[in-house]
Design a protein around this nucleic acid. Structure first.
Length: 473
DNA sequence: GGGCTGTACTG
DNA sequence: CAGTACA
DNA sequence: GCCC
């Protein structure tokens, strides 16, 4: 994060209509402001540019912009986005908003990217996304404060996660603590005050206060309160235990706690309750121990090699790739994540059928021992369990079948981690795109920008390549 | 007070 | 549709 | 927790 580069929108007055307070719109306008734009609610100057953020009728337009409208340029938001991406103001006429269009016609590709400088993007998100690309984490001693704050926040997260089963939803609080942790971990210098987190926008607000408290007093009063609450509440420990059963989320775990169960045995012994469980949950109980064990990296590779050999027997062009935490370099994984595709095959029915063929073959060979999803010629994905020949342990196996053309977007999705994906999707939204496992699309008309080339997807979002091992955010 | 990522499957 | 899962 |  260098700073001090010229602001692309310096002095540009924008009137954005309709006014919206959605998170995405806000984040987007924050970026514009940081790039020097002045945002007005009404036209205040002959130079004002009216940005129509969403399709709008002429009547609405007239009432929004009001009497002060003097024939200013009226453009689609892509004008601003493209100007930022290209680091210069784009010609307005190409981006004219017109009321009659059914779909507001967006620019196809955001032209050629002249520079891919994360600076122009939401600094906070990009800061997190480039985590790990930074300096060595040597000089451990100097970073004691960083570690201390991270540890406290992690403890708080753990307790908030327990509490949200019973009380209100802490998910977004938890998310923000996680983002703060990522920010601190990406810092290339010792943490001495919340000011050090300015580049992430965390130099004021609740998180900043907590950071200051921990740095100055070594204590974190909020955490102490949380610990008090956790202690002496057996329900929390039980919830955590029950939620480790595959297929059991918070609602079901809460049901178990309400029923007074103290162990998984209690669930099985209650015939009525057991009968009410889904097949997946019953498997989750059956394989409780094995599925909560970590799988060594080398064993993940053995499973992969087995599947690859079977796939080759079906069709030389049937490709299998290892995804998930393995791809991020983890020494152990919770499950085995595979993508399968067939060279040159994009048609949905064929994609599904090829996944079906592979799954059937793996079932017949005895590798797949159980399944949580229906195995049919129309399957999109497989979730189940597998065992290597002669092995004792059943491992969780996920396979998704994808059109070859979607390899890049699918890889982003399936390599993860989840937080990385969420940041990326958020960043996409802010920049007027929509990112899913199927591809990167323009938000305006859902037209495909890129799905095959992972690099291109990141690049279009203003990011340089992010190594898989740096996606653990 | 309300929103906060996006998709697929089960029952 | 709610619940759960996947990243 | 953060932002409007």
């Amino acid at each position: 994060m260098g700073g001090g580069e010229k602001k692309i929108l310096d002095g540009v007055r924008l009137v954005v209509i309709p006014r919206s307070r959605s998170k995405v719109d806000r984040a987007r306008m924050d970026i514009w402001k940081r790039q020097g734009a002045v945002l007005d609610s009404v036209v205040k100057s002959p130079d004002s540019i009216v940005v129509v953020a969403r399709p709008l009728s002429k009547a609405k337009f007239d009432s929004s912009v009001g009497a002060k409208y003097r024939g200013q340029p009226v453009v689609r938001p892509e004008w601003v986005v493209d100007s930022l991406v290209n680091r210069r103001l784009m010609p307005l006429d190409k981006y004219q908003y017109s009321f009659d269009e059914k779909k507001p016609e967006p620019t196809k590709e955001p032209e050629k990217l002249e520079a891919s400088d994360p600076h122009k993007a939401d600094q906070r998100l990009v800061g997190f996304l480039s985590m790990g690309a930074r300096g060595e984490k040597g000089r451990m001693g100097e970073f004691a404060n960083n570690a201390k704050v991270v540890k406290r926040f992690e403890e708080a997260i753990r307790i908030y996660e327990l509490m949200q089963f019973f009380d209100k939803n802490n998910a977004f609080r938890i998310k923000n603590y996680r983002l703060a942790i990522s920010a601190i971990e990406s810092l290339d210098k010792p943490l001495t005050s919340a000011q050090d987190l300015k580049q992430f926008g965390l130099d004021r607000g609740g998180i900043a206060q907590h950071v200051e408290e921990i740095l100055q007093t070594g204590t974190f009063s909020k955490l102490e309160t949380l610990k008090q609450q956790e202690m002496g509440d057996e329900r929390y420990q039980l919830m955590t235990q029950f939620k480790k059963i595959y297929g059991v989320g918070d609602k079901t775990a809460y049901r178990f706690v309400k029923a007074g169960y103290k162990s998984i045995q209690d669930i099985v012994h209650d015939q009525e309750m057991y009968a009410s469980l889904t097949d997946a949950q019953k498997l989750g109980i059956l394989y409780f121990d094995e599925w909560n064990e970590r799988i060594p990296r080398t064993e993940v590779e053995e499973h992969y090699n087995f599947v690859v050999r079977e796939a080759e027997e079906i069709d030389k062009n049937l490709k299998v790739m290892l995804m998930g935490s393995y791809r991020r370099g983890a020494e152990t994984s919770g499950d085995i994540d595979l993508i399968v595709y067939t060279e040159g095959v994009n048609e949905a029915s064929q994609v599904h059928e090829n996944l079906y063929k592979l799954t059937r073959r793996l079932q017949e060979s005895g590798f797949i021992v159980c399944s949580m999803t229906e195995v049919s010629p129309a399957m999109h994905k497989f979730n189940g369990g597998c065992k290597l020949p002669g092995a004792q342990k059943c491992r969780r196996l996920d396979i998704i079948g994808i059109p070859h053309a979607e390899l890049g977007a699918s890889t982003i999705y399936f390599v993860g981690n989840d937080i990385f994906n969420r940041c990326l999707r958020m960043l996409a939204q802010i920049k007027g795109y929509h990112l899913s496992n199927k591809g990167l699309f323009l938000a305006a008309d859902k037209s495909l920008v890129e799905s095959f080339d992972e690099r291109k997807i990141l690049h279009t979002l203003g990011l340089d390549w992010v190594e898989y091992k740096h996606r653990n955010i």
